[in-house]
Structures are given as structure tokens and as C-alpha cells.
Design a protein around this nucleic acid. Structure first.
Lengths: 221, 221
DNA sequence: CAGATATTCAAGGGAGTTCTTGAATAAGAC
DNA sequence: GTCTTATTCAAGAACTCCCTTGAATATCTG
């Protein structure tokens, strides 16, 4: 290989993509953006960082081409530049789950004990939705529901669930979902519902996986 | 979110995986290892770096769990710890191709002008292999052929091709393949064959894509 | 057991990353 | 046109990453 310089430059560029994801805070940003577009301040709240720092991370993602922006009124909204980025993030998570030492412990420390929670697979939920014998709750923030949700699901942000328990048909089997397996909203929802004596389960993964599997989705309020 | 610390730690761990790939030299290593196991010294030659530096990069990949080692005689062989890692690498390449600014130019600078080269898709090659009306040449180093190759292909490392032109049936349509679209061995092979008046094409991608699509492969000399 | 050799370790300089702070910018609102 | 406010910019301290160099380690070979 005479000119390794050209090869090195090419692979450096390929690695740019990995560099963009090579930070815990940016990984959190991608995870939230996989649910739909969000403003800078909003994202800063999500990842518990200053707005300035969040803005800098977002610009790094922008330079790598993983996200794009649009102005909407007084804010700037960031979103993933294509569904392929969401796929990359899910693939990376799978690899980390399978290969990164100590990940399981960290996940357990964050999500807590799930052993008492009933779960449901995507396929089972699809069947039950078709049969119509299930109430599906989207317990993510309402902005994420508007950006896209499982068709037939109702938006009940986790913070509102307790107050709205009465609105949910007490005889129905309830399935709650959120951002994915590293999100605890659906867990909280199932616990709350169980305490209230309801038959409840969480969807194993989240909305991005549902959408990526090309299952029925809807948009808007 | 009361304790963001646990979430931060979890996402830092997920990002470890990206950090491992977030370097051009390590990307080159993964690209070579996607063809099969190799020794440290061998890999150092491939990526044009010192053995010490290569060893350090490999250990970083090892710590992230993306590769594993085995001792074989006097050397230590590194290999990808699962096919999932190869999938991650291919996904990252696709994202970079689609989203990283200036990548096309860098690719063109490395692989040169491919406009004069005939190409063949995986599907077409599979059909022709089944029909038996094609000669398939694996022009990678012979170690990579041994680690795994397209079933029915002959090993003709690119350096040996000129000397072995006479061995190739002059009436047959020839298809050459190598590591993938960022590898130039098959290009060189097709040019050489064309100069010799042969009907030749390169497989669009490489062996890892063939294997990942679960098409027929074989192992050994 | 001694020698040979593949690999790893350790230390260091230069470059890049991450987060903080405070100021600058620029678009919408009044 | 001025005020408001969401976002970005700029500079700097602490830290990590990357490559080099030379030495240490550990396994095979004879």
C-alpha cells in the first residue's frame, strides 16, 4: 500500500461518525432525539446539563451530520438527520449490551428491579391491538407523543398518570410504553397501575423500535 | 429525574463502544479483522503503524469487548468478538457515507476512478455461481481466504495475479472480490484482467457483506 | 535452560475533549 | 425601534487521547 495517507484520511472520516457518538451526554441526546425533534433548552433539561454545554454537544452532532436543525418561532429544533441514525444507535446499544463489561450492573442500577413487572413483546402488542382487547398508554412527554406514537395509543405523560387513573377502563388490560428499555417511565406507570389494582404490562422496548419495525404509527395530538 | 448520576453512568458505558471505534486507526483494524483473525504484527503492517501503537489500539478494542484474543504458537491472534461487531461497523460506514461531509471526495481520493470498472451485485453473483458460468477470484491475502471465503472462489492474492493469469480459463467471465467497497484489491485485479483482454468485473461489496447475508461460504485452504 | 522473538508496558509531549463562565448574537414580540 | 430570550461564541482549566521511544515480559524453540 504505497500511499497510506489517503486511506488514513478516509478512515479518519469514517471514524468521525463514531466520535460524534463517543460521549455519554451525546448518546443521551441521540436517545431523546430518536423520539422526535426537540429544542436546545428542552434537551438540556433532559440530559441535566447547562444550555451552553448542550448546544456545544449538539453542534458536534451537527458537524458529523447526524442531526439537522430547523427554526420554529423563537426556538431552534434539532432532529436526527435520518432513521438510519436511529438504527445506528440501536445497533450500538446491542453491541454494548453484548460486549461492554459491567453494563448490566449499570443498567440495573439505573432502571432498578424489573422482576415484578409484566412485559409484552412488540408482536403480541400488535396482535392485541388488532383484536382491540388492550388499552395502550404512551407515558412519554406529550411532545414526543405528538412527534409520533403507536397507532391507537393514548397520551398519558407519566406525571399525569395518577390523576388520570379514573379515565382508564378498569376492566381492560393496560400496556404502557416509553422511549425504550433504558427508559423508566413505563416501569413507573406499570407499578402505579398495579398498585391501583389494574392488569398492566410494559412493552419490552420503546417507540423507536416499533417505528423502525414499520408497525402502524400515527402523528399529532 | 432525581438521580441523573445513574443514567449518566449507564450512557457513559454505552458510549464506550463508540469510543472504541472513534479513531481512524482502530476503524482500519476493525475493517481488517472483519475478514478474520490476524496477529498483532500483521495488523501493524496493514495499518502502517508501529507494533507498540497497534498493540495499544488493540487493547483498547479489547477493553471495550469488541475483540478477543487467542494464543497460537508464538503469536497472539485478535478477532472480532462476534459478527454483531462487523454489523455495527457496516452500519457506521453506511451512516458516514450518507451523512459525513466530504466523505465521497476522500473515498474517491483513495480508491481512484472506478467508472471504467464493471461491477456485479451479490444477487447476480449468487445466481451465476449456481449456474456455474463464472470464475470467482478472492484477491485478498491468503490468510483471509483461509479464514473464510465465498464458496467456489479461488484464492489469488492480488500480488500473485499477474503471474497466474495463464491459469485462468481465458473464455470465462471473471469476478474478483476483496474486503469491501473501501478496498482496492479487486479494482486492481479487474484492471489487470481487462488489460489482459479478459471479461472481468468486481463484486460491489466484499466478503463480510456476503457472509453477513448468509450466502454460502467455505473455510480453509 | 538459554536465546529468540512477539507482544506489552511505561513515561512523556503535543493535541483534542469536556465542562464552566460570562458575553455576544439574532430572531421574534411588543 | 427597543426589549426579550433562545442560542451560540470564546476563553480557560482539568482531563483524556495518540503516538513515540526504549525497556520489560512471556512464550516458544533448540
Amino acid at each position: 500500500m504505497a500511499d497510506h495517507a489517503a486511506k488514513a484520511a478516509l478512515f479518519d472520516a469514517l471514524a468521525e461518525c463514531a466520535k460524534a457518538l463517543a460521549n455519554g451526554r451525546r448518546a443521551e441526546l441521540i436517545d431523546v432525539l430518536a423520539q422526535g425533534e426537540r429544542s436546545v433548552e428542552d434537551l438540556a433539561l433532559e440530559i441535566d446539563q447547562t444550555v451552553a454545554n448542550t448546544s456545544q454537544h449538539l453542534q458536534r452532532l451537527l458537524r458529523a451530520g447526524l442531526v439537522r436543525t430547523r427554526r420554529g418561532g423563537t426556538r431552534i429544533f434539532y432532529e436526527l438527520s435520518s432513521p438510519l441514525v436511529s438504527t445506528l444507535w440501536r445497533t450500538m446499544r446491542r453491541v454494548a449490551e453484548e460486549h461492554v463489561e459491567g453494563l448490566e450492573q449499570l443498567a440495573a442500577a439505573y432502571v432498578g428491579d424489573r422482576s415484578g413487572l409484566d412485559t409484552m413483546t412488540r408482536d403480541e402488542l400488535r396482535e392485541r391491538l388488532r383484536a382491540g382487547d388492550v388499552v395502550v398508554l404512551d407515558v412519554r412527554p406529550s411532545a414526543e407523543y405528538s412527534a409520533g406514537h403507536i397507532r391507537g395509543a393514548f397520551s398519558v405523560p407519566i406525571g399525569d398518570l395518577r390523576a388520570r387513573l379514573e379515565d382508564i377502563d378498569s376492566g381492560a388490560r393496560v400496556v404502557a410504553y416509553c422511549r425504550g428499555s433504558y427508559c423508566v417511565y413505563a416501569d413507573e406507570a406499570v407499578r402505579l397501575l398495579n398498585e391501583a389494582g389494574r392488569d398492566a404490562a410494559r412493552l419490552e422496548d420503546g417507540f423507536p423500535e416499533w417505528a423502525s419495525a414499520r408497525l402502524p404509527v400515527a402523528r399529532g395530538v
